[in-house]
Design a protein around this nucleic acid. Sequence first.
DNA 1: CGCTTGTCTGTGATTTCCCTGAGAAACACA
DNA 2: TGTGTTTCTCAGGGAAATCACAGACAAGCG
Lengths: 249, 249
Amino acid sequence: MTTTSPQGRTELLRPDGSPVRVLVVDDELSITELLSMALRYEGWQIRSAGDGQGALQTAREFRPDAVVLDMMLPDMDGLTVLGRLRRELPDVPVLFLTAKDAVEDRIAGLTAGGDDYVTKPFSLEEVVARLRGLIRRSGAADRRSDSVLVVGDLTLDEDSHEVYRGGDSIHLTATEFELLRFLMRNPRRVLSKAQILDRVWSYDFGGQANVVELYISYLRRKIDAGREPMIHTRRGAGYLIKPAVPAVP
Amino acid sequence: MTTTSPQGRTELLRPDGSPVRVLVVDDELSITELLSMALRYEGWQIRSAGDGQGALQTAREFRPDAVVLDMMLPDMDGLTVLGRLRRELPDVPVLFLTAKDAVEDRIAGLTAGGDDYVTKPFSLEEVVARLRGLIRRSGAADRRSDSVLVVGDLTLDEDSHEVYRGGDSIHLTATEFELLRFLMRNPRRVLSKAQILDRVWSYDFGGQANVVELYISYLRRKIDAGREPMIHTRRGAGYLIKPAVPAVP
DNA sequence: CGCTTGTCTGTGATTTCCCTGAGAAACACA
DNA sequence: TGTGTTTCTCAGGGAAATCACAGACAAGCG
C-alpha cells in the first residue's frame, strides 16, 4: 500500500497499513546511525545490530520486512548470518553492503534470489531506492505501488531508468538520475545544497559543494531546455522541483 | 494459468490460482538454499530435503507439482528414490541433477517419461527454464502458457530454441541464448552485470565479470546489427532490452 | 547605482567504465 | 583423434562521466 503524507511524500506501507520494518546490521556505529536516520525519515521502523548474534536475535523478535546486512561482521561471516537469517525469515529480502574492492566471489550469487547489494561508500538515495525496490517486489508492501515517479509532465521510471519530459525521452547519467529522483521524491519542497549533497553523493564525498550547482545546471539543460522550467532556485535556501506553469503568451 | 505481476514478469500458477509447489532434494545445503532462493523468487512455494527419506516424507504431505532431485544422495540411490516417489506421486515431473561426468545413459532412459535433467554446475536460468517447461507440459499449470517470448519484433522459443528478429532466423550459442532469454524475461528493466552473472552463468563461475560485456557484444552483433538497437547500456547500472523505436528520418 | 554575495556554466584534467580484437583453452562431435 | 565451435582471458582503445577551477552573471541590499 502507498499513502501520501501531508508533505506530499509517498510512503511505502505494509498491507495492514503499519509502517515497513527494516533491520540494519553493521559493526560501524557511524554507518548504522547514518542509515537508521535516513530510513526513519522514509517513515520506516528501524532496528539495528552490530554483529551477527545481535542481528539474529533482533530478527527473531522484530520480524523485519527487509534487512540491510554488512558482509564484514566481527563475529561471523556474512554468508553464515544470511543462512541462519533465512531459516528464521525465509522470504525477507536482504540488501548487502560490501566494500568496493572486496573479492568479487564474496558477493557472487547474492542477487540470485532477488536480493541486492550496494558497495561502500554508498549514497543514501541509492540505499533507499534499492530497499524500496526490494520491499516492493517482495510483496511486503502493496503491489499497487509501482516504480514510476511523476511530477507534471515529467516521469521517471526507477526500473528501466527511463526519464520522459512530455513525449521526449531524456538520457541522464547515473548522478543526474539520482539527483532528479531525489528532487522528484520531494516535489514542491526546497532542498538545500547540503541536504542534496548528503543524500545523493556518497557519505565520504570530500569535494567542493558546488558539484550540486553543476549537476543542477546539467539537469536544467536536459529537462528544462526550451520549455517552461520545472527546477527553480531559491536563493540562499536551495532548489525545488514542481510542475511547470504554462507560459501565458 | 499465467498472471502478470506489477513488474511485468509472468508467473506460472496452478489452475486454481495457487502458487506452484516445488520440492528440492539435494544433500548440499548450499545447493538447496541457492535453489530455494531462486525458485521462491519465481513466485513458487518451495520445500527442501537433504536425503531420500526426507524427500519421500516431505513429498507425501507437501504434494509438489514438480521435484528437483539430486541423483547423488547419502542414504539411497537416486533411482530408488525415484521409484518410491513415483508410487506416491505418479504424475509429478522430476528434474534430475547429475554430476557432469556421471554415466549419461542411466539418465537417458529416465527422461523418456517426460522428465528432464541438468548437470552440475548449472545456471539458475537453466534450472528455472527446465522446471517451467516440465510444469507447463505436465498440466499442473494452465496449458495456455506457451513457450515463446516476444519483445518487439524479436521472438525466442524456449522449446525449439529458435530466435527470430523480424523475419530473420538467428543462430545463437547456448550461452548467448540463455543471456537473451534472461533479458527478454525482464524487458524494460535494467539488469546489473552481477544479476546477469548470478542467473546466467553457473554458480561456480569464478571468472572475470567482463564476460557479460563480451556476450552482450556478441548478442548485439547478431540481433542489433544493421537494425534499430534493442539492447541498451545504462552506464554504471547495467543493460536492458526493449522494443526498438523506429528511426524517424 | 554600485557592491557584495550567491549562483551559473565553459573548459579541461582525471578517472571510470565499456567495448571489442586476438588468441588460448575447453568442448562437442564425427 | 582431429576439426570446427564455443567459451573465456587479457589488454588496448576510446567514450563518457565526474569534478575542480575560475570567470561571467544575477539578485538583493545599502
